[in-house]
Design a protein around this nucleic acid. Structure first.
Lengths: 149, 149
DNA sequence: TATTGTTATACTCTATAACTATA
DNA sequence: TATAGTTATAGAGTATAACAATA
C-alpha cells in the first residue's frame, strides 16, 4: 500500500520500453533455467510428463495439447516408455485407444527436475536484497496474469 | 517508497514458493513470446542475427557464443547468407578466417522481430491496472539482475 | 464409414570425425 | 605443426501421407 503521491500512468514510450525489458528478462531467465538446471531431460519430454501428472491421457490428446503431430508425439512417448517414465494400458471400453500414465519413476523424475529448476532460481535470489525479494513476490501475480491471458 | 511497516524478510518456504512462481511465469511468457509473435524466424537464427548486431564475428566465435558445434553454426549461417540477412567477407589479415556481418536487410529483420515480440507483450499489458504496470516497471530491474548473474 | 493408433518417409537441426587450406 | 573453415555422416526432433484395426 503506497501512501505518497499516486504514480502517474506510464507513458506510451515507457510502456514500450517496459515491454522490451520484461520480455528480455523473462526470455533470459527461461533460457538459463532450461540450459543450466537439467541436463538429462529435454523440454518436450518433461512437458509430456507434466501433462500426465494430473491425469492419464492418450497419445492423441497429448499431441493436441502440445500442438505437435500424433506421430511426433508417438516417438516422444515411445522414448518415455523405454525410459520407464510412463506406462501404456489398453482402454477397456475402446480397443482402439491406449491410455498413457506416469509410472512411480516418472512421477519422481518430474519432482526431481522441478526441484533442480527451483534450486537454480533460488540460488539467483541469494544476491537480492530483502526489498527486492518482496518486490518480486508482489510482481509474481502480475507476471502470472501476463502469462495466462 | 513504502511508508508502512518495513516488511519482514521472506521465510525459506516463501522463497521456495516464490522461486517456483517466478520461474513458471517467466517460462510461460517466454514460450508465448516465441510461439505467438514471430512465425518465420526460428529462435536459433534470430539469436545469431542479434549476436552480429553490435559487431561482425567469425563462424567459430558464433558457435562458441551459442554453444553449438562449428558445423552446426555453419549450417545456420549458410541459411542466413542465402536469405540475404548476413554477408561473408575474407579477413584481410588472415586468409583462413571469414568475417560474417549483418546486411541492411538483416538489420531490418532484427528490428522487425523485436517489434513483433514487444507488441505481443504490449498487448498483454492492456489488461493490467496502472498500479500493476508500475509494479512491473520496478520489478524489471530485479528480473534483469536475476537473469544476468 | 469414421476414428484411433501406427508405420513410412522426408526435412531440419544437432553432433563428432575427417579433410583442406593457411599461419 | 597448429588452427580456421568446411564436408561427411549420423542421431534425434519435427512433419505429412498412407496403412491397420476397431466403433
Amino acid at each position: 500500500m503506497r501512501t505518497k503521491t499516486p504514480t502517474a500512468p506510464l507513458s506510451r514510450a515507457e510502456l514500450v520500453s517496459l515491454s522490451n525489458d520484461i520480455r528480455l528478462a523473462c526470455m533470459r531467465i527461461s533460457r538459463r533455467v532450461r540450459f543450466e538446471s537439467d541436463r538429462e531431460m529435454p523440454p518436450h519430454r518433461f512437458s509430456v510428463l507434466c501433462r500426465l501428472e494430473s491425469t492419464p491421457r492418450t497419445n492423441s490428446e497429448l499431441a493436441d495439447i502440445e500442438r505437435v503431430s500424433a506421430p511426433s508425439m508417438k516417438r516422444t512417448t515411445n522414448t518415455l516408455v523405454e525410459l520407464g517414465y510412463i506406462a501404456r494400458a489398453d482402454d477397456p471400453t475402446d480397443g482402439r485407444q491406449v491410455i498413457l500414465s506416469l509410472t512411480p519413476e516418472g512421477r519422481r523424475a518430474v519432482k526431481r527436475v522441478r526441484k533442480q529448476r527451483d534450486e537454480w532460481m533460488l540460488s539467483r535470489f541469494e544476491h537480492l536484497t530483502d526489498e527486492e525479494r518482496e518486490l518480486l513476490q508482489r510482481a509474481a501475480d502480475v507476471l502470472a496474469k501476463v502469462a495466462s491471458e
